[in-house]
């Protein structure tokens, strides 16, 4: 049976259909559920094997990207999401979804104010849309585990700059294998903070992180926008690059095995 994925559609989600297409192609059954339905109707969270918070501009990024959606997650669904995460089911937040997971404290987990992380304004000071190359690193993360090839896909954000208040948090993330994805040059060498390979100034080229358990992934880039060969910017030069499908297939396979 295909794992059912709950696609949480908040006010301002806009890459929900993109990720649903990617999940369908990868073998899941995505079901879009508007946040208001989650609040007003009895939704059986147990019926879902995966949770996806898609990209977008929830609440128009008012007061900081993802901030108000994070507030909703904590105010309305804290128990359901905590149970979902604790049960080990795959959860993914992409772009605005990542921002919400981070600002709600679901990622990197155990977040406290003294050792907080954030996704802040890109160093170049504006939104940018471009293709990037990602190295899947974490073998703890069920989404990136075993992915050998670098993924190419676009970023499209203004607040994707991963920063921490205290560098020891980086050491913790690193030691717990929570650094799931990093930006690299197209040849796979580390971006080392160089623009535009690292498109936003993130510390240690971090593009995505997971929780210590490895089932929750947040990432800024959009693997869901590289699922067909003709989406690659150089397909007309016969360049293909690795799609984002492997990442989704990983999550789906894991969900199916639970």
């Amino acid at each position: 049976m295909k794992p059912k994925a709950l696609i949480l559609q908040a006010r301002g989600s806009n890459r929900d259909l993109d990720v649903m297409e990617a999940l369908t192609l990868s073998g899941a059954e995505p079901i879009g559920v508007p946040l208001n339905h989650l609040r007003s109707r009895t939704t059986d969270w147990h019926a879902f094997q995966m949770l996806v918070i898609p990209g977008g501009f929830s609440y128009a990024d008012a007061l900081g990207a993802g901030k108000l959606l994070a507030l909703d997650l904590n105010s309305y669904f804290a128990d359901e999401i905590n149970a979902f995460v604790a049960s080990g089911k795959p959860v993914i937040g992409i772009c605005n979804g990542f921002q919400a997971l981070l600002k709600s404290g679901i990622l990197p987990e155990g977040n406290d104010r003294q050792r907080a992380s954030t996704l802040t304004f890109n160093t170049q000071g504006h939104f940018e849309c471009r293709w990037v190359t990602l190295a899947p690193l974490s073998q703890t993360c069920i989404w990136t585990k075993g992915l050998n090839d670098n993924i190419t896909c676009p970023v499209a954000h203004g607040e994707g700059n991963f920063q921490v208040s205290d560098l020891t948090l980086i050491n913790t993330l690193s030691s717990l294998d929570q650094i799931a994805l990093t930006y690299t040059h197209p040849d796979g060498s580390p971006a080392n903070g160089e623009y535009p390979a690292n498109p936003n100034g993130s510390v240690l080229d971090i593009a995505g992180i997971c929780n210590p358990q490895g089932n929750v992934l947040g990432l800024m880039p959009h693997p869901e926008n590289h699922i067909h060969p003709t989406q690659h910017p150089q397909w007309s030069r016969d360049v293909s690059g690795q799609t984002g499908l492997g990442l989704f297939e990983n999550g789906i396979k894991y969900a199916a095995g639970l």
Partner: peptide, 21 residues
């Protein structure tokens, strides 16, 4: 680059093209 030209996943020929895009 300030405009999102990738969303909805349908952009086959993008506003910028070539080996270095």
């Amino acid at each position: 680059r300030l405009y999102d030209h990738e969303i909805q996943g349908g952009t086959v020929v993008k506003p910028l093209a070539g080996i270095l895009n």
